[in-house]
Design a protein around this nucleic acid. Structure first.
Lengths: 223, 223
DNA sequence: CTCAAAATAGGAGATATCTCATATTATTTT
DNA sequence: AAAATAATATGAGATATCTCCTATTTTGAG
């Protein structure tokens, strides 16, 4: 983990236009952290010392179950908070958060600023907004996972992550994310190929029948 | 739906000690609504006109999927908000909320007070707190549902809802809530009886082996 | 009290998904 | 370049869960 100093730090502080977050001026206490791919931003079971806000990069939230099974429960993307739960509650939290690409975030030491943050209207509104979106998304994922077989959820995931008609995610990440076994993921992918929705070339899959995938994915979101 | 007036209204306003929610004094604009069992507090697809806070009773959140299947996605209990999403976002929302017992809540007309609410720190903090808990719970449910078979989730549910060793929920509600088919729920319940965890008398089930159920449920929460 | 609707109950077969085992191929480390 | 590790692939059999069907019992409305 690297903490940016001087000009580099200044650059990011300006870029993030942190005025939008706070009425109070935290600027001089704000740290800019960079985490390398694979590094743990928060270790599971450890109480974090900072409130983070992701500026660049991508991270993953993991939970380890008692049976040893580890689930990827979500991605964290730019413009999202990390550690807001710990700011609000005293309960401590046991999720692990790992950078999955180089990740740059701003970091506010919780211990020193908790009280002030909780009195800042601008910040609170921003936070409440973020939380409401987060909780909606989670609820969506939940009932989707219950109500639909992998076929539908995978179609949706493919459409969301495909780049120019080409799908090329790591199976391991995907099956964690969708909560199915590696084996079954491959099975359904093979089915998609067999049915002509996708074709496989090497490690990549090309979308052949966009409409059918869209149709499958549409069942998830009932709009 | 009944709107309380005068003394009845006053009673609930005092009981809820609404000072804890707001710095501003909304008291005279606050309505107290009572919904009968089965009544819709918010109809699916309809934009609500109030922010609610449940004082007494229990409600259910439903979503209807495109395939016509309806999922119960959660219960709403006393001391929880309803409609906070609509307050924060302009997006409108398509969940249906139905009272499952007589439900009394306070109701703030959103149109008139939105702006003021969003400037009230006390309220925002309360709301952020609520949302963070909500989203955590949802996340928990999500990964539980993915990682564990019904056996574990049902054991947990039984322990949570059993009253004095007796479990007596409606199967229909439960299978919606746990996201499994009616048939399968019965099957696992029958298994529990066969294995001696429960015994069945009429429509009720009595817990015979509390320890095993606890053990099954414990896998869900890894503490 | 009566009838319709809702809830319970269980059989049978299909499908989705998992576990385990074993090869092969990329990628990273030394 | 060799060795170690991670990722991909696939078969086979087990289990969890679903759908459809049909019968009985309970509950609620009139």
């Amino acid at each position: 983990m690297e903490i940016y100093k001087n000009e580099k730090r200044q650059l990011y502080i300006e870029k993030a236009s942190i005025e939008q977050f706070f009425s109070l001026s935290l600027e001089e206490f704000l740290e800019i952290h960079e985490y390398a791919r694979g590094e743990w931003i928060i270790k599971e079971g450890e109480r974090p010392h900072y409130l983070f806000y992701v500026l660049e990069g991508k991270a993953k939230i993991y939970i380890t179950h008692q049976n040893g099974k580890v689930s990827l429960i979500n991605f964290i993307n730019p413009n999202e908070f990390i550690g807001e739960m710990e700011l609000l509650n005293d309960v401590y939290y046991t999720k692990g958060i790992q950078a999955s690409t180089k990740t740059i975030c701003f970091a506010i030491p919780i211990n020193s600023f908790r009280k002030q943050l909780l009195e800042d209207n601008k910040f609170l509104r921003k936070l409440a907004n973020f939380l409401s979106v987060k909780s909606t998304k989670m609820a969506e994922k939940y009932y989707q996972s219950l109500s639909f077989p992998l076929e539908n959820r995978l179609a949706d995931f493919i459409l969301q992550t495909a780049d120019n008609g080409m799908y090329k995610e790591k199976h391991i990440t995907v099956c964690e994310f969708l909560g199915v076994s590696y084996r079954h993921l491959l099975h359904v992918l093979a089915q998609f190929c067999e049915k002509g929705y996708l074709t496989k070339q090497g490690r990549a899959y090309y979308i052949q029948n966009h409409d059918i995938l869209t149709e499958l994915a549409k069942s998830l979101r009932n709009e």
